[in-house]
Amino acid sequence: MSRELILTTALRVLKRTGPDGFTMNALAAELGVKTPALYHHLGGKSDILAGMREYISDRIDTSAFGVQPWSEAVTVWARSYRRAFAAHPHAIALLATLPITGARRTLTMYEAVSRGFRDSGWPEALIINTVVALENYILGSALDAVAPPDMLEPGDFAEEVPVFAAGLRARDQAPNSISPADQAFELGLAAIVTGMEATRAVLTQASRQH
Rank of each mutant, 00 (worst) to 15 (best):
residue 178 I to K: 06
residue 105 R to N: 03
residue 129 N to S: 12
residue 138 I to Q: 02
residue 120 S to F: 05
residue 151 M to N: 06
residue 151 M to V: 09
residue 89 P to V: 14
residue 115 R to S: 12
residue 138 I to E: 04
residue 103 A to Q: 05
residue 121 G to V: 11
residue 158 A to E: 10
residue 99 P to C: 07
residue 97 T to C: 01
residue 115 R to K: 13
residue 124 E to M: 13
residue 147 A to I: 14
residue 168 L to R: 10
residue 156 D to I: 01
residue 90 H to C: 11
residue 109 M to R: 12
residue 104 R to C: 06
residue 150 D to H: 06
residue 94 L to F: 05
residue 105 R to Q: 02
residue 149 P to H: 14
residue 174 A to H: 00
residue 170 A to Q: 13
residue 101 T to A: 15
residue 159 E to D: 13
residue 112 A to I: 02
residue 102 G to A: 05
residue 158 A to F: 03
residue 87 A to Y: 02
residue 105 R to P: 03
residue 129 N to I: 08
residue 116 G to V: 01
residue 119 D to I: 12
residue 100 I to L: 04
residue 163 V to T: 02
residue 170 A to D: 15
residue 102 G to Q: 07
residue 175 P to F: 03
residue 114 S to P: 00
residue 161 V to P: 01
residue 130 T to V: 10
residue 124 E to K: 09
residue 177 S to Y: 02
residue 90 H to R: 14
residue 125 A to R: 14
residue 113 V to G: 02
residue 156 D to G: 00
residue 179 S to Q: 10
residue 144 D to K: 07
residue 106 T to R: 10
residue 162 P to T: 08
residue 106 T to Q: 10
residue 109 M to L: 15
residue 120 S to T: 14
residue 128 I to A: 14
residue 123 P to S: 09
residue 124 E to D: 14
residue 97 T to E: 08
residue 171 R to D: 09
residue 95 L to V: 10
residue 144 D to E: 10
residue 123 P to F: 06
residue 171 R to M: 13
residue 168 L to S: 06
residue 127 I to M: 12
residue 111 E to F: 01
residue 172 D to E: 11
residue 168 L to H: 04
residue 106 T to V: 02
residue 170 A to M: 15
residue 156 D to S: 07
residue 120 S to C: 14
residue 172 D to G: 09
residue 145 A to N: 03
residue 177 S to K: 03
residue 96 A to M: 12
residue 174 A to P: 00
residue 158 A to N: 03
residue 141 S to F: 02
residue 100 I to P: 01
residue 123 P to H: 06
residue 96 A to S: 12
residue 147 A to M: 15
residue 139 L to H: 06
residue 128 I to L: 15
residue 160 E to F: 05
residue 127 I to V: 15
residue 162 P to Y: 08
residue 108 T to E: 15
residue 170 A to W: 14
residue 163 V to E: 00
residue 139 L to G: 00
residue 165 A to M: 04
residue 162 P to L: 10
residue 110 Y to A: 08
residue 141 S to L: 03
residue 176 N to G: 15
residue 112 A to H: 11
residue 177 S to C: 04
residue 156 D to A: 08
residue 176 N to E: 14
residue 91 A to C: 11
residue 147 A to F: 13
residue 97 T to K: 04
residue 168 L to K: 06
residue 172 D to P: 00
residue 165 A to F: 01
residue 160 E to V: 02
residue 169 R to W: 10
residue 154 P to Y: 03
residue 140 G to F: 08
residue 172 D to T: 02
residue 94 L to W: 08
residue 165 A to C: 04
residue 166 A to Y: 03
